[in-house]
Amino acid sequence: MKARWDIFCSVVDNYGDIGVTWRLARQLVVEHACDVRLWVDDLRAFERMCPQINVQREQQWQEGVDVRHWPAQWLATPSADVVIAAFACQLPPEYMEAMAACERAPLWMNLDYLSAEDWVVGCHRLPSVKFKGVQKYFFFPGFRSGTGGLLREAGLLQQRQAFQQDARAQQQFLQSLGVFPANGARLMSLFAYENAALAGWLDVLATDGRATHLLVPEGRILGDMQRWLGVDRLAAGDIHRRDGLTVQVLPFVRQEQYDRLLWCCEFNAVRGEDSFVRAQWAGRPLLWHIYRQDEDIHLDKLDAFLELYTAALSPAAKAAVVALWQAWNTEGDMAQPWKMLLAHWPEVAAHAETWCLEQGLQADLATALVQFYESWI
């Protein structure tokens, strides 16, 4: 019989939480023949990346996944064989009682946030708390051997490489989004939280000697972009030009389309967790806007990733990457770090592809979860 999986997603940061759990749910169904229920407390956020979702329905099937609205007033529901609390969300007390009432307790996992910090390897798959005899386990995605790896669908890297070698396919895809970059223009994407450093970066992009076409999916950075452009409002479809920089606002697109957008671009600025991982699978230089946390503990996570990611770079290229990422995440001056990065572009670009292929040698997150369940039973 198929293993029954329940994945609980409490939407905190609009799209990152649901982005990860939606990808995971679909992959468990398609590649591992699992029976998956995805519980989501905010279907409006889900609708942005799955437009066919009916936000009024309590239950519906989408791409083989049993999508359930996670109501404030929980109804009696049998426990699954595997229960995933994504990003440490709290399960409904009634559901926890249902887990405890099972003749055979389910495998209960806390799927934690992605981190490159050293301690993650030591904590991965360790037991956590118990609830009436039901043991919870830590499960950490990660970049090192000994972690749960990263979300990566079967054949993804081969699809990406084929797409990037097909100029016509890229052109057709961009045209489907209304994107027509000038010949020779640097194509970049920007998906970020609010950031006061944006104006300085846009200034240098507009004057760095090469035309840039910047694609900006709808999101929280648009307010800063409006101020720099001096306009009252930005919406999907808007195009503005200043000197050598063209800014184009894109509508929110499905995850598969966003992947291809990243594959088309020479450089991708991303945020949170889901787009961060997808930018790495694009094999192109990237810039991560990490989610801000109290007491700046997010900067420790940033530094841990940078130390791992830049280990194989020359000292000068490493310094350029680190300077750019730190300036972006501390709202510092972006002009000089961007010029430093451009000076080392060939090495940084080659490294992005190498890093991608090295990470692709590890088991993907969905496979690691299934393997843990099979070893647990």
Results as ranks from 00 to 15, higher is better:
A182H: 11
M188V: 15
L214T: 09
P181S: 06
L215A: 10
Q172C: 10
A196H: 06
D166Q: 05
V179P: 13
A196G: 07
D203P: 00
N183E: 11
A197F: 03
Q165W: 00
N183D: 13
S176F: 11
W201L: 07
Y193K: 04
V216N: 04
R210L: 10
G178R: 14
Q165F: 03
G200R: 01
F173D: 07
F180L: 14
Q164N: 04
L187F: 13
F163V: 01
T212N: 08
A197T: 12
P181L: 02
R168S: 10
R210Y: 06
A169C: 13
Q170P: 10
V179R: 07
L198W: 14
R168N: 14
F163Y: 05
L174G: 13
V204F: 05
V216C: 08
D203M: 09
G209Q: 10
S189M: 10
Q164F: 05
A206Q: 03
Q171I: 03
A192S: 15
E194Q: 09
T212I: 05
D203H: 07
L202I: 12
F191H: 04
A199H: 08
L198G: 05
L198I: 14
A196P: 04
Y193G: 06
R210G: 04
L174Y: 09
M188T: 11
S176A: 07
F163I: 13
L187I: 14
T207Y: 03
Q170L: 07
A185K: 03
Q171C: 11
Q170S: 14
L205D: 03
A182K: 13
A211S: 15
F191R: 05
V179L: 01
L205W: 02
D208R: 15
G209I: 04
A169Y: 03
Q172V: 07
W201M: 03
A211M: 15
A167H: 02
D203C: 08
T212C: 13
A169E: 10
Q164Y: 10
A197E: 06
N183H: 11
L214Y: 07
R186N: 11
V179D: 01
A197N: 10
D166L: 09
A182V: 15
Q171Y: 05
G184D: 08
A197I: 07
F173G: 12
Q165L: 06
D203I: 01
A211H: 07
Y193L: 12
H213I: 10
L187Y: 12
A182Y: 04
V204R: 01
A197C: 02
R210A: 15
A185D: 12
A211E: 15
S176Y: 05
L214A: 10
N195G: 06
L177A: 04
A185T: 13
M188D: 14
P181E: 02
Q164K: 00
Y193Q: 08
L214E: 01
S176N: 04
F191K: 13
P181T: 00
A211G: 09
T207Q: 12
D203W: 00
E194A: 15
A196F: 03
Q175M: 05
M188P: 14
P181V: 06
F173Y: 09
S189G: 12
F163M: 05
G178E: 02
G200L: 00
L215C: 08
F191N: 12
T207E: 06
A169L: 08
